[in-house]
Write a protein that binds this DNA or RNA. Structure first.
Lengths: 200, 200, 200, 200
DNA sequence: GGATAAGCGAGACGGTACGTCTCGTCTTTTG
DNA sequence: CAAAAGACGAGACGTACCGTCTCGCTTATCC
């Protein structure tokens, strides 16, 4: 899933701790900082280089375009919010997970980054984006699997609908209307979604 | 509702057909094209000027920031989709209206504009955006008013929830997951939303 | 000598106290200020208009080019230094006059202006400049005439040489080498010049 | 003496014939042309870039201000006129040297450059200008040294005066009054100066 | 253990776009 | 009818970043 896997650089150097690996780490960290500070739009490779104390040509050697660098950095960040824990019931699991998602929009810097992701031209980084979203949906899938194991069976089509009914309003608040996203709101969306798909 | 109303430009020139009005039209149309072709990120005022056959300084005189230009272009388009017609029932009215909204994402040009709208930094144009969304919500309010007049009463809080439950998934498909938006999908979101708020 | 005499504007308006005359006065005064403050190079008609509280199109109606406006303003200023007084001898008259000239270079703002005049392309405002320099040389001519009336006769060719031998070093210090110009220096140049032309 | 020596540019590139050296040459030549054609005032870096077939940002990298570019172009030319030859006597040496200087004003291109040099604001490039003039005066110093070796001793203060009495009128003719500068005129200024300092 | 190849530091460069300033022209309204 | 008012085309400004290139230097394997 890491984009840089395809890079021609670093056949041996990427051993953990190697010089190359250090560069990669420092650059991605710096990119994340830059992203959080300036948002996607004003993201500047030049500044990333300065932050990482790496020459800018070195960055271009590994990440041919800005989009690719940003994407790698985003993925790095995204994983932080991908920690679903078993809460004992489908409803509780969904609440917990989407409260985490909602919190991401609450962090202005993360919000800026998500906003940027959306702004990327649909034709850019298609595969990378597909992979990213697949990864995210895998998380909710796990939640439903776990529920099924507990006996709360939800049909695949209903899973999809439920996720859209919860995530849709959340994203809309986060990206579009700027309405607040707190735990109560997230909970009510979860309830509405479960009611809509006829889940007890 | 037009953002440019606050601009120092156009005292008399904005009479329909006047020179200024022509410039405004040409620029906004060109901005929409530019947005479609290059996306918000690579949106270049310089190119808009070339497309519109207007000098770039003229654009800066009216729209001091890129955000404002994009916003005005979006608003221009938005009104096209704001024509709700009485279909005889709340469900039918909502379907009709949101099918129109969904269609907007189907038009690549419009989709690009909406994408641009989202990409504008949240601190930018706060008032203008608020006004814009107020306008959009006014349309669904009318639908609910009409329904109330017919006896289909929905509490204000439920109106809001219903709209979010329909529009949220639609926008998410349009902006984020790129899943298809057809009439069947819109219909099912409307049904889900009405079920969620307990509307018969 | 006033350049604006050739302007198509102001057939009757230039009666002293007329509306046009007031505009002319205010604009020239403002132009002089602007010149003194920003120097020739960064002289901006726009700012002159603001200073004069006159619309900038009004200025362009009278002074088709910036050069002409500047020139008129310079001439206005120059006269301030053109007040030779009878000091009783050729040597004293020359000293007094050129000490005044030297003082002009001492005023940094005036110096900036002179510097600008020199920088004007030789092909620009040829007639105006010729007229200006003729005016200036007329002053030294008066000095020599007065001396002749007193019995200190100097041949025309020697007058010219003397003036060049005094003014030359002065201008060079003022414009080129930035060496100091004080009364002692001016005096010694006058003495050298008179010695060179064999004047007692 | 080259101003650009202090520039952060050109670590190795300045080897004669290197890429950077070529750029420098081409730009300075183009700057001289531009100065000749448009004068200092309408001197446009943009046009210099076009003439030199170099991107304008490249020019700004090396010469942050217009003044520095003009100055370097002037210095480049100046050296051409700095070749005093031993003519056997002080008078002859001075004549030969200043005839060369006068000739410089005769070359329109060089004259335009000198005019530009004068137009530079006095606060700009103070050190560079000081160095430049020191270099020029060193040439006349050599002439006086040579004369002293031959037995024609001139006191330091008189050297300075003499040079000003010759160069001053020359520069004034060249820059200000546009009077002709031929060998006869130069000769008479030399003679006048020597007479003024009491040199046989 | 010295060639050799890869990665990095360094920096000039061509290039796009930015957003601003000023110019001088034009058209329309006002006193 | 001149001045006020202001939009406009035009051109240059100087800056920020982009992505490419060329050139040494270092370092870590591989013969």
């Amino acid at each position: 899933m890491r984009h840089v896997d395809a890079s021609p650089v670093d056949p041996r150097g990427s051993r953990p701790g190697g010089r190359s690996a250090q560069v990669r780490e420092r650059v991605l960290a710096a990119a994340a900082d830059e992203l959080l500070e300036h948002g996607f739009e004003r993201f500047a490779v030049t500044r990333v280089a300065e932050r990482a104390e790496v020459h800018h040509t070195t960055i271009y050697r590994r990440w041919p375009t800005k989009s690719e660098l940003v994407f790698d950095a985003v993925v790095e960040l995204a994983d932080a919010y991908a920690q679903p824990v078993d809460q004992g019931s489908l409803r509780a699991d969904l609440r917990a997970y989407f409260i985490g998602v909602g919190a991401a929009f609450g962090d202005r810097r993360t919000a800026a980054l998500i906003r940027g992701l959306v702004a990327i031209r649909p034709d850019d980084l298609v595969d990378a984006r597909r992979a990213y979203w697949a990864g995210r949906f895998r998380i909710t899938d796990e939640i439903f699997e776990r529920a099924a194991a507990r006996g709360e069976v939800v049909a695949p089509a209903d899973r999809q609908r439920a996720v859209e009914l919860i995530a849709g309003p959340l994203w809309m608040r986060g990206l579009v209307t700027s309405l607040p996203i707190d735990e109560g709101v997230v909970g009510s969306f979860v309830d509405d979604a479960l009611r809509a798909i006829g889940h007890a």
